[in-house]
Write a protein that binds this DNA or RNA. Structure first.
Lengths: 120, 120
DNA sequence: TGTATATACCTTGTAAAACAAGATATTAAG
DNA sequence: CTTAATATCTTGTTTTACAAGGTATATACA
C-alpha cells in the first residue's frame, strides 16, 4: 500500500482540472500538484500521461518560447477533454462517497478524519 | 481513465476497514463493497489481496463452517493491520483534500464553496 | 436420483499506471 | 567554463485490478 498506488487514475483527472483552469505546461503542472499537496509527482509520470491524453484527443499542445530555459509545451483542453474532466469529477465524487461511507461506518475511534465531510 | 484504476491502493484500505468493523470473510466483503457503492469488485481482486495481507501479517484467518455452503475463511486485524489501517486513513484524508482543493480552485462551474487553502 | 442454484474459495495471464533513473537541451549566473 | 535552474522525453520495473476460468459444498426441487 504505497502512496503512489492511490494516485492511479486520479492524476490524469487532476491534470485535466489544472489545464481547464489555465493553459499550462508539464513542468509547471508538476509544481502545481506539489503545491496542492501531492508529494512530488514524477515527471516520468506526467509527460507520458500528457502525451497519452493528446493521442486520445483530450488535449492539444502549442510550443512557446520561455524567458528562461527551453521551449514550453502548453496544453489546452479539447471538447473531448472537457467531457473527460466531467466524467472524472463524477467518478471521483462517487469514489469519495463510497470510501467515506465505509470509513464512517466501519472504523471505530478513527483519527485523521474528524467529521468534516467534504462537499462536492 | 477507467473506473478500476481509481481503486488502486484504495481497496485494500477499505478491506482493512471492513475487517476492523467486524470479523469477515472474502465473499461477504465483496458484497459489502458492492453495497457501499463500489461497482462489483471482482473476487479475483479480493482473494489475492487478502492472501497478500495475511502474508504481510496484517490479518489472520480462521476457517469456520457455514450453514449453507462451503467453509468460510474469517479474517481479523492484527496489531500491524490496525496500524496499516490508520496509515491508510491518513493517506486517504490527505489525498481527498488535495484532489478537492484542485477541483475547487481549478474547475469552473464549481459550487460556491470558497476554498480556504489550508495547509496539509 | 439428478440437476440447478447460491455459496465460497482460489489460480493464471493480462493490461494499465506510476516511477526511478536516466538522457537531452536551453538559458542565466558565478 | 562551470554550475544550476528550467524543460522535455525515454526505458525498464513494480504494483495492482480484473477477466476468465476452476473447484467444492449445501439446499431446493423435479
Amino acid at each position: 500500500m504505497s502512496q503512489t498506488q492511490m494516485l492511479k487514475g486520479i492524476i490524469d483527472g487532476c491534470l485535466l482540472a489544472i489545464i481547464q483552469g489555465k493553459e499550462c505546461y508539464g513542468y509547471e503542472m508538476a509544481e502545481r500538484l506539489s503545491e496542492y499537496g501531492f508529494c512530488a509527482v514524477s515527471e516520468g509520470t506526467i509527460y507520458p500521461l500528457l502525451m497519452r491524453m493528446q493521442r486520445e484527443g483530450l488535449v492539444t499542445s502549442v510550443r512557446k518560447n520561455s524567458t528562461a530555459g527551453p521551449k514550453r509545451k502548453y496544453y489546452s483542453l479539447t471538447e473531448k477533454g472537457n467531457q473527460a474532466l466531467e466524467d472524472f469529477l463524477s467518478r471521483w465524487s462517487q469514489l469519495e462517497k463510497s470510501v467515506n461511507r465505509i470509513i464512517r461506518q466501519e472504523t471505530k475511534g478513527n483519527d485523521g478524519n474528524n467529521g468534516t465531510t467534504s462537499t462536492i
